[in-house]
Design a protein around this nucleic acid. Structure first.
Ligand SMILES: NC(=O)c1ccc[n+]([C@@H]2O[C@H](COP(=O)([O-])OP(=O)(O)OC[C@H]3O[C@@H](n4cnc5c(N)ncnc54)[C@H](O)[C@@H]3O)[C@@H](O)[C@H]2O)c1
Ligand SMILES: NC(=O)c1ccc[n+]([C@@H]2O[C@H](COP(=O)([O-])OP(=O)(O)OC[C@H]3O[C@@H](n4cnc5c(N)ncnc54)[C@H](O)[C@@H]3O)[C@@H](O)[C@H]2O)c1
Lengths: 257, 257
DNA sequence: AGGCGCTTGTGAAGTCGTGCACAAATCGCG
DNA sequence: CGCGATTTGTGCACGACTTCACAAGCGCCT
């Protein structure tokens, strides 16, 4: 166990340049832990056990401990984790010690909502610029920012050190926008348009597609409905609510031949 | 268009109400395949190979074939998949043969964008009702729907057979809204608020959190930046583009103590 | 000081998902 | 009618992730 963890007990709070290379699944959960930790900090907790934090983050405690162990040993056996220290560590690993500048392209329906979203600012990001291709939108002012024409992207991206771009244009324009973002030096893209983007090696893309989320839920609805005939095999007899949860499934399957 | 449900060549077009139970990872990809298929259909393709569809959906072809094989054998060796048939099958499995009614709670910044989003309608869903707790918003009309007070949820959910709910309220209200949705018979929830929801067994929750997506991207930015000193160790020597991708990484780490 | 209860960190086993590689199936063509 | 080109469906090995279970470490109490 004498793992020479980056930074950890080395006593030297100075330099910890090398990131441990975390499993992707762990990286995806760290932000959730971070949010939970901030909640705990605000409600006056100084320390928290893996059990407690796991509950707050909606995962099981073994997973949480293993995730955190990848960052190093920041817990105290018999006590738990120091909330403030853990926040610091996770923020460091996620690269949130600096406030990252983000460009938002496509100031339509969705873009407006995103531009006005406070959650960006409170969680480590700064919307540094808004872009659109529609001349009638250019110049419009939204939460303190003026919408710029997409042509100015390269210039502004360089000036503001923008490395993250958000695409909120129609799908038809998304690939073209992505190309322009990449050309402007952006190396991470969050894409809201329902399409696959092709980007060069070294550029990360994450996608958020509302309809996909709903369709996954739809599948589960479908599956639940096809199980209605079965008796309440409830593995856990103790579900509190589940009110009348019945009529909902009334007429589902029309599997009729 | 008689539903030739699963069991294609089994000859017995009798009853196959039971869904094959698909791996969760497969379920999550089916919507992506479906979108790609619709694109192909619109551009006049009648059939598509696993290779072609995989490219359109952004996955590798082996994965795609394995995913589809879970639904049954709907391809023709030497030819590929019949686009229309595959669309029909995937829509059946996802439970999209009926247009599912969705309730949207919280008609604020984000809620407005969602309410006006056409992608719902074109991909199997119908926003059946909008709810808010703010009296000044109740009565407002948005894309043909009147905003109702959250108190009317149970009544309307029953009347409209709503089984899916979308939460777009502040985090502080989300759990309470979730409880009300569940009490109204909703069994699937899409949550945009940054918090964990606790729901009874049998209710599915999916979460979309913008800030988490950005933080994951931030991690990768951080990691890329900590590698700048290394030469282009490119495991694959053949990256095509990678335009000027340079200055972007200029001043990164400010690993101050 | 020593023992006790609590909690972390982690080997190890189990589960799930991925990708390869190829036999089987089908079509088009000669 | 048979053959070769093509593409699916899948067995298998591998890797990633999850979960269990417990020894080691820590603080507190006596
Ligand atoms: N509205 C939603 O709730 C919602 C939800 C999920 C996904 N989406 C997706 O997000 C995207 C945007 O949705 P929306 O409802 O805001 O659409 P919208 O039409 O309201 O807005 C699109 C904006 O992009 C701009 N645009 C078009 N081409 C551009 C280009 N080449 N460069 C820069 N800007 C360009 C348009 O001028 C417009 O302002 C769509 O792909 C949609 O499918 C929207
Ligand atoms: N705006 C965005 O782009 C964005 C992006 C990602 C996530 N989110 C999240 O989505 C949620 C909504 O964001 P927003 O910007 O639209 O906030 P908002 O404040 O503009 O809107 C929230 C709406 O919910 C209503 N509401 C409050 N309590 C309610 C209750 N108990 N029942 C019913 N309605 C209630 C409010 O009246 C208001 O209309 C937040 O949790 C936010 O973190 C927003």
């Amino acid at each position: 166990m004498s793992q020479q963890r980056p930074g950890g007990q080395s006593g030297q709070p100075g330099a910890v340049p090398a990131l441990p290379d975390l499993p992707e699944a762990t990286v995806a959960r760290l932000p959730e832990y971070l949010r939970a930790l901030h909640n705990l900090a605000e409600t006056g907790h100084d320390t928290v056990s893996s059990e407690g934090l796991a509950a707050a983050a909606g995962v099981n405690s073994a997973k949480l401990r293993k995730d955190l162990s990848h960052l190093g040993s920041y817990g105290t056996r018999g006590v738990g984790y120091d909330v403030a220290l853990l926040i610091e560590q996770i923020e460091y690993v996620l690269g949130l010690t600096q406030r990252r500048a983000v460009a938002l392209v496509g100031v339509g329906n969705l873009g407006h909502a995103l531009a006005g979203y406070a959650g960006f600012a409170t969680r480590g990001f700064r919307i540094a610029a808004l872009f659109d291709a529609d001349p009638s939108r250019v110049g419009e002012q939204i939460s303190g920012l003026v919408v710029r024409h997409i042509e100015d992207l390269a210039e502004i991206a360089a000036a503001e050190s923008i490395a993250i771009g958000v695409i909120a244009t129609p799908a038809a324009a998304a690939q073209s926008v992505a190309d322009q973002l990449v050309a402007a030096g952006v190396t991470s893209i969050l894409n809201f348009a329902p399409c696959v983007l092709s980007v060069p090696e070294g550029v990360d893309v994450r996608k958020v597609d509302l309809a996909i989320e709903l369709q996954i839920l739809s599948f589960h609805e479908h599956r639940k409905a096809s199980l209605t005939s079965l008796p309440a095999t409830g593995p856990t007899g103790g579900l509190t609510a589940l009110p009348g949860g019945l009529s909902a499934t009334g007429t589902e399957e029309a599997v009729g031949t």
